[in-house]
Design a protein around this nucleic acid. Structure first.
Lengths: 366, 366
DNA sequence: CTGAAAGCGCTTACAG
DNA sequence: CTGAAAGCGCTTACAG
């Protein structure tokens, strides 16, 4: 009956199915929703009609009636500018974000939820409008860093369930983050005590990112404990992206300033740029300068040398964000204001440890 | 008035806003939708009420009324089994898929659409049920490879707009793919003619994937043209994943069989596994064996040696998929049955070309 | 320009 | 077990 090449003029509704099966729409709905009241014969007729017609129930109508869309939205920020070509694809791939989103999706699956992906960029002057639209299409929001100001988050969270990732605490939202302090403490000790490097720098991320603040603070504390005056400040300010890390190295070298013996990068992406720029200038890692990251994104082990970094349970961060959001949506329990996941030091070659012959997962204690 | 820490009992509706502003719901709706009929004073009162209340319009209700959700769904397949630890994060990161999805998102943004992400896995015995649910939540579907059998796609496409990525042509769906043949032809010529390698293997992907079939066919044609009998077949069967590539190498070496001078991998992920397994066995790339990939995923340039591969415009593949789907949804024009995007050979170090000192984007002719 | 009312396609008390 | 009908929160002809 179907014309293979033409889209039907009007989509089918539950009324069409009911008519086809000779029952009421209520029965169709019950069968479709797995209620066990319809008797077997009714069920069969409905199922047959559904199969024959290829009926696809309208999710919007279901959502409206159920007051539940079974959709959570994840919002992240698209990088400000098109980065320079040499790193274009790295930045575009936004590795960290992708892995988190995958974790959210995995969590959502278990509850029959799907994930609505959306981005805001700096050009969206009022991200409010965009985020309101997204909020309307979902049951709750997971906001990555740099998407909305704390004020905006607080307002939004008054109306819809909101979970932030590595964000700021707000009156009504819940924050999920990893234990930056512990991870950075371990890393700093490894570099300053185990390796005994005499000079060290912290190449920062966005100044106002809570993750960056926590990492910088723990770093400074570690340096102070070792009695070392680290390099930090304006000159060593990155932006979480490879291009930012590379630029800092070029600036330092360009000004004829000496490089420290070790460079602690705010995240892995930054370290990628640093490794790249150092290689360009013939600086050997880790022989001349040790470099470390933070996150342990999937490429970290493919860099050359393999990157010593602090592992965050990235997927789990996403899965936890979903679980907490789900609790908020279903109202079953009031979650904590903040959930903190553990980190761990992953020692590979870039810190100066001798790693055997390339075993990607090898983790050794300094 | 709002209690900062409590979720309101009932979400606000347009009626609340109308009451607050002293107008009808029709006026509220008109203002919210940017109609210019409401006079300035009305508009202001509505906007004030919306802002004060923090009103978030329900997307499901809008969608139901507009017959448009402004959502497209992207469905991809979660890898069959939890892969072995050594590649766990690689596989999970599914680089290729992520980049495509990002392209879809970029395309969607321009039209105010958002992207619903969802996965099916092999354990979903009837992916039909799951996909029907997703279809109901969106205006159209973009299906990655291996998500649904051609029959299922054809049926589905009768009811909802469907675009496949590197899929099979169907009566009502549209397929987007890249020019596998041209890319593989260039690559094969480079290895067999420019480098003149005497022995070569094709390490395949999923046997039934259209991409794999096209790549294998072009490879075989190239080998035949060079008068070379390539290694292929059961022993050289991979699965598009790093673990699969590594396993093939171990099997070949384990059986004491000789390695070919060059190994052409069905995709970059496979090449990652091959590089890894070769390194474990002390085989030097490209000195002993040349290795190539296909796709040019972001990590390809970070491998050691950097991977020679065939670049697909991955993001563009996603953006094009959205554009075509959008045309289908809006019914503005009937798109072609298939769109083919160009590929290009990217020569780095793993094929045996001498690359200067590590310039990631360097492309030279053999 | 504005409002009352119908309608979008479902779900689910409520009767029977 | 089943059906008629109300209701979910919007949009938009249709009158005025």
């Amino acid at each position: 009956m179907d014309q293979p090449d033409e889209r039907p003029t009007r989509a089918l509704t539950i009324y069409d199915v009911a008519r086809h099966a000779g029952v009421s729409i209520a029965s169709v709905s019950r069968v479709l929703n797995g209620r066990n009241s319809p008797r077997p014969e009714t069920r069969e007729r409905v199922l047959a009609a559904v199969a024959e017609l290829g009926f696809v129930p309208d999710g919007a109508a279901r959502a409206l009636s159920n007051r539940l869309k079974e959709v959570v939205a994840v919002v992240y920020r698209r990088p400000k500018d098109k980065p320079p070509d040499e790193f274009a694809e790295e930045e575009e791939s936004l590795l960290f974000t992708d892995v988190i989103n995958r974790g959210v999706e995995a969590g959502a699956r278990k509850h029959g939820f799907d994930v609505l992906l959306s981005t805001v960029d700096v050009h969206d002057h009022g991200p409010q409008a965009r985020i309101t639209s997204i909020a309307g299409k979902s049951d709750g929001l997971i906001l990555h860093d740099q998407v909305l100001e704390p004020d905006g988050i607080a307002r939004l969270a008054q109306r819809v369930p909101v979970v932030t990732l590595a964000g700021t605490l707000t009156s009504a939202s819940v924050n999920i983050r990893c234990d930056n302090s512990a991870g950075m403490r371990e890393l700093t000790t490894h570099l300053l005590v185990d390796h005994g490097y005499p000079t060290i720098a912290y190449l920062s991320g966005h100044g106002d990112s809570p993750d960056n603040v926590a990492r910088a603070t723990a770093f400074l504390a570690g340096a102070a404990a070792a009695g070392i005056e680290p390099l930090t400040g304006e000159l060593w300010r990155g932006n979480y992206m490879a291009a930012g890390g590379a630029q800092v190295i070029r600036d330092v070298i360009g000004r004829g300033l000496p490089l420290p013996r070790a460079i602690v990068c705010a995240n892995d992406q930054t370290a990628i740029g640093v490794l790249y720029a150092l290689a360009q200038h013939g600086v050997r890692v880790p022989h001349d300068v040790a470099v470390t990251g933070f996150d342990d994104v999937p490429v970290a082990r493919h860099l050359h040398p393999q990157l010593t970094t602090v592992r965050q349970p990235i997927q789990k961060l996403g899965a936890t964000a979903f679980d907490v959001l789900y609790a908020l949506i279903s109202g079953e329990r009031r979650p904590e204001r903040e959930v903190v996941l553990p980190t761990s030091l992953v020692i590979r070659g870039s810190c100066g440890c001798q790693i055997e012959n390339d075993p990607p997962m090898s983790i050794m204690d300094g």
